[in-house]
């Protein structure tokens, strides 16, 4: 484990904590896309199929359990919690899951490192994670006014992606035979999706004004 990977995992973890804190303490999920959260729950469920079959490390297993539990509890909060669910912007969050899930599934069936159920599911989760943020970005674009916590949540997710790219570069140069085109390309696509958001985030931070996206 290198420093970029650890920092990437920690920012990823922080993004989830920020979101759970917002939902749990303010009892509001305003500005958060349920579609994106459901896609993330699906991403973790399909990626971590190996959780009970392949032991990598205690760290790995615990982090997987945290990501599974947190993503499903966020979905539960937004759908079931009697106060939180009232703040959900249902009419604005109209992105269709299937438009993202189907192409990712098809792509994973054709492009994968090994044609087995677990491997295809793993590849599917990589493709889906790359685009799962889209409903969230569309929602941000529509509501334009972003509260601090939502802004920090998306920022931390983007930071996590950027750090993972540094992790791959580091591993490529330090570990023999570490070549993973599928992971790299889908990871790069995912990070690029944040570029536009980052531009506005840094501008608002630099000018010390509230983050607001253009119409």
């Amino acid at each position: 484990m290198n420093i970029f990977r650890l920092a990437g995992d920690m920012t990823h973890l922080m993004s989830v904590i920020v979101l759970l804190l917002k939902i749990h303490t303010i009892k509001s999920c305003a500005g958060i896309s349920l579609k994106t959260q459901e896609l993330y729950a699906l991403v973790f469920a399909t990626r971590y199929l190996d959780i009970f079959t392949d032991f990598i490390s205690l760290y790995n297993t615990i982090m997987k359990l945290i990501f599974l539990a947190s993503s499903f509890s966020i979905v539960w909060y937004m759908r079931q919690h009697k106060i939180v669910r009232r703040s959900y912007d249902k009419d604005q969050d109209t992105f269709r899951h299937l438009f993202l899930i189907l192409p990712c599934l098809l792509l994973a069936l054709f492009i994968n490192e090994k044609f087995t159920f677990k491997e295809v599911m793993w590849t599917f989760s990589l493709f889906l994670e790359a685009v799962a943020i889209l409903p969230q970005l569309v929602l941000l674009q529509r509501t334009r006014n972003i509260d601090n916590l939502t802004g920090q949540y998306v920022f931390l997710l983007g930071a996590y992606r950027a750090l993972y790219i540094l992790n791959w570069i580091y591993r490529y140069f330090t570990e023999p035979h570490y070549v993973h085109w599928i992971t790299w390309i889908s990871g790069l696509v995912q990070t690029l999706l944040y570029a536009d958001f980052f531009y506005y985030y840094f501008n608002s931070w630099k000018n010390n004004v509230k983050l607001q996206l253009p119409a």
Binding site: R5, D9, H12, Y164, P176, Y178, H180, T183
Partner: peptide, 10 residues
């Protein structure tokens, strides 16, 4: 064991 793999990532 085995080759380094992106499967050990989260």
């Amino acid at each position: 064991t085995g080759q380094p793999s992106a499967h050990d990532e989260l």
